[in-house]
Design a protein around this nucleic acid. Structure first.
Lengths: 216, 216, 216, 216
DNA sequence: TATGAATGAGAATTCATTCAT
DNA sequence: GATGAATGAATTCTCATTCAT
């Protein structure tokens, strides 16, 4: 990356800049409300210049989302990478996912629309691409859970179902932030999500508290 | 309803028909991809006739969604209405919500986009309206959970957090259906969602199985 | 008119009623701003019924205007009919024209637009019809003036020019009323128009006052 | 004006061009008959280009009219500016107004419709704007007449009434041109209007001819 | 004869994209 | 490369008119 000629480095810089500007605008106002001219103005480039970087509006939109999803996946995978304990891997997933979305709340809207909404264009191409990236993440979680099951830590059952559950639970927390004016910290929700997912809603019959220590 | 003059009855019928046709089209292809002319054709009315029933595209879209959300809320509330046991109320919520979305899979896309996506128009008016309707539902769940907590059935904590968790978990199941070509029945997922939510992921130390019988 | 069968009499009544209602609406808001549905509502007939009386909007509009122009011409001709003195004929014209427009101020807008404005439809047919009717009126004035010239009462010159002048002068008075909130009486303007037209702007060298008495 | 950058100069040029083309079309066929696409074609621009210069059809229409009214006012004021004699000021007004309208006969239709017709849109904004501009002109005439009265040149009375009269008289001449196929010169009418306005219709008792010399 | 729901042609306007400078 | 003026296809909505009841 250091070896790139100046021209190429600058270009990359410009692309990233426009992607960020456009991503935020799309997230706040939706694809169709945002005009290419506005993106150009906001990014302080001429309209034609934006078109020299991206094939068109759709392309710009896709890249903006994919860039962010890559960040998300990288960030969460990174957080899970060093752990070996199944419980901790799940906890890292919860923590990293919530922190990332907390720091990129605007992006949440785009992400869920593209993942689950009607296709913005005829095809679901983008949606599939995003799902693939994110799916890999959930698969790691699934694997860890599966391992946890065989180690007797997690209750027997479908690892996929558990992965789906933890993913949904965390997404719901993110949605709740969307409704608040300005949530101040994700700590409380991270803790609650971990506790509820691991222990369930019911009182544990004569349970010891389940803590990290149990697994480590 | 029986007493309505024929004219008025016909009108209602037409409105409902167009709402259904349009709702499905919006769900499949998104607001901006669907053209008013297409809706008219699909509904077998002239363009102007559609406009005589709805103020405009936006209005048609909103009514289509609100109609469905009303159905959802009515259906789920109904299922929870007869129960008193907190655990059963939660189970009915899970069951009814999953069944409704299973039967209206197309609508899911619209629903989540409007609830959590970028505003289709400048304002978030529709989004707020939908949230209010759905929120009331979650509040009943919250209440039941709170009661469950004071009865010692549910672990102490924030009832809201638990309600959010169960809502997110079930939504994630629905999302997973969206990815499948044609999920054949929601039964397995209903059972899994109930189990995971109530007992959590971990093995219960020396727990008795939690069954409906416990509460009834 | 008394002999008409009841049906026919009622029909005429309805036509006149709609013409009046429509005429006022057209005058206040302009042809294109007024909708046939509104006219029907205002006249308390069903839309289809209005169409059973008039071929279409254009036809209704034309009849509304022609009806009023007929009234104008009848009223002014009537006022001039009994006079023989050229000066008095001119005075009656001024007086009757101003009074009629004063009593039908709304109609003024329509009248001038149709007489002098761009054609509402491709052809100028209506405009020509109106001009013909009104022209006959001005021709009587012209004739009177011509007679006045040969009698030495009016200065020699083109009678047409004088007729045009008196017509323009009175129209200008009407326009000035259009700008006022509610002009309370046309008397002052009638007097001024007569004086100015007959005597001109300049001081009469050692002129006797020109009065009706001079001619009668 | 010489210093403008080329881009800006071209833009102005295009705006003026479109304004002229549109003005003529509106005058000949009326606001509602003229389609934006036709204006674009006639002006040899793409439809979108016209919209890049004007906010919409209404805006284009207003500017077209206001531009011409400005020309009218400038032209007539200019003609009156150098004179001090009240009689000559009036004569210059008559002459300049008639010449301007003679040279812009099409525009006459637009002008009178907007000044005195039903409002093209709900509001009378344009109409008021035009009236204000033209009113200033008539006020100069009024002033001159008032001065003429105190100098004993004009007969005592309301200067406004005289200004209204001269304005109406000249307008009537313009209307008469509208009816002719192609009036060949305004000279005869200018002379007649001056004579009639100044001396009136009646024979001057034993009057000397009133000439410019009398006043100068 | 009266009614008003249904019709659909027609027009204004927007905005992604291109390309001459 | 950068610029932004020019383009025109595409879409929403209106409203005069018709016609089945």
């Amino acid at each position: 990356m250091e070896k790139m000629p100046r021209r190429e480095r600058e270009r990359q810089e410009h692309v990233r800049h426009i992607l960020n500007v456009a991503g935020e605008m799309f997230a706040k106002r939706g694809f169709f409300k945002v005009k290419m001219k506005e993106i150009a103005e906001q990014a302080e480039f001429a309209l034609g210049t934006v078109y020299s970087f991206f094939k068109g509006k759709q392309n710009l939109y896709q890249q903006a989302i994919e860039q962010k999803v890559d960040e998300l996946v990288t960030s969460v995978s990174g957080a899970m990478a060093d752990e070996t304990s199944p419980t901790l891997i799940v906890k890292r997933f919860i923590e990293a996912k919530l922190r990332f979305f907390f720091d990129n709340l605007d992006f949440v809207r785009l992400y869920f629309v593209e993942m689950h909404g009607p296709p913005l264009y005829g095809e679901r191409a983008l949606s599939f691409a995003l799902e693939d990236k994110y799916r890999a993440l959930l698969d790691s979680v699934s694997e860890a859970i599966e391992r946890g099951m065989s180690e007797g830590i997690f209750a027997k059952g479908s690892p996929k179902d558990l992965a789906t559950a933890i993913d949904g639970q965390t997404s719901a927390v993110v949605f709740s932030w969307l409704r608040e004016i300005s949530p101040d910290s994700p700590e409380k929700e991270i803790e609650a999500a971990e506790r509820i997912f691991l222990n369930g809603a019911l009182t544990r019959p004569r349970g010891r508290a389940v803590s990290d220590g149990d697994q480590e």
